[in-house]
Design a protein around this nucleic acid. Sequence first.
DNA 1: CCCTTGCTTGGAGTGCACTCCAAGTCAATA
DNA 2: TATTGACTTGGAGTGCACTCCAAGCAAGGG
Lengths: 151, 151
Amino acid sequence: MTVMERAPVKARNTCAEDTGHPRPTGQDRYSISEVVAHTGLTAHTLRWYERIGLMPHVDRTHTGQRRFTNRDLDWLDLVGKLRLTGMPVADMVRYAELVREGEHTFAEREELLTAHRENVRERIAELRSTLEVLDHKIDVYADARRASERV
Amino acid sequence: MTVMERAPVKARNTCAEDTGHPRPTGQDRYSISEVVAHTGLTAHTLRWYERIGLMPHVDRTHTGQRRFTNRDLDWLDLVGKLRLTGMPVADMVRYAELVREGEHTFAEREELLTAHRENVRERIAELRSTLEVLDHKIDVYADARRASERV
DNA sequence: CCCTTGCTTGGAGTGCACTCCAAGTCAATA
DNA sequence: TATTGACTTGGAGTGCACTCCAAGCAAGGG
């Protein structure tokens, strides 16, 4: 039974430092399936990330298989966070390009992240305001239920 | 110059009770373009919402044009909130069905909203944890920038 | 030697949430 | 009467982020 290609099972992933998945070995060359187990992404998605330029040039074995480093796992953790907060893939690719271009892009990277931080703050505010509406509506339904139980 | 069909301009909408758009008239029969102005949705989207069963049967004039009520606007405000918090359209349609079916669906509606509230809470937690990462990275870049300015 | 496992590739397909199109109706104005 | 503008419909198209497919290769076990 292989561990590969299973759907992410609506994988709001139990990612990284969380619980189950420490770095597979202490070593620094992980196969794609190890990375799948670690990140909750599918192998398809990892290959796709690389194709579109969202990975910092992954190393290969002499037979052409990918070998990911701890640095790659760190990067994927960051990408996962940005993704969960709704940053478009195109923006993440842009950020990856800036990283590849070197230290003279620090300012632009800072801008990009600052803009995204502002987005995230707005999203939080939206979610909180919806939470109030939900609380209120749920209360109304709960009251109705209790009233009907108390007949 | 028509007001219709303009793109939502990345419309994190300034919706409802917020600022600019009070209920168009004090009356209770709004044309589709009035609702567009009020909600920030496009006319396309409003018609699509109706087609898929996400609206509570919108009234028509004798010539077949839609006339929305204040109740419809309230509903659209709720839908907007649920949408911004990432509830899938299918779930919103399910909720709309329950509303149409009457008061005996109160319990199921409460369940659906409670489940979504839990999602929203998780999303908020995710966003906050990302915010910390962003703050940290932005600090690092800002420090680097200040260091290079202070040469 | 053959089979299975684990991986490789480019390209095609999927699901969601819109978004747009073509063709038409109706009411009001020029 | 002709045109304009706001609206109608069913169905087709779009963009995003995956998701999968077919064909193939290398290494190890029976």
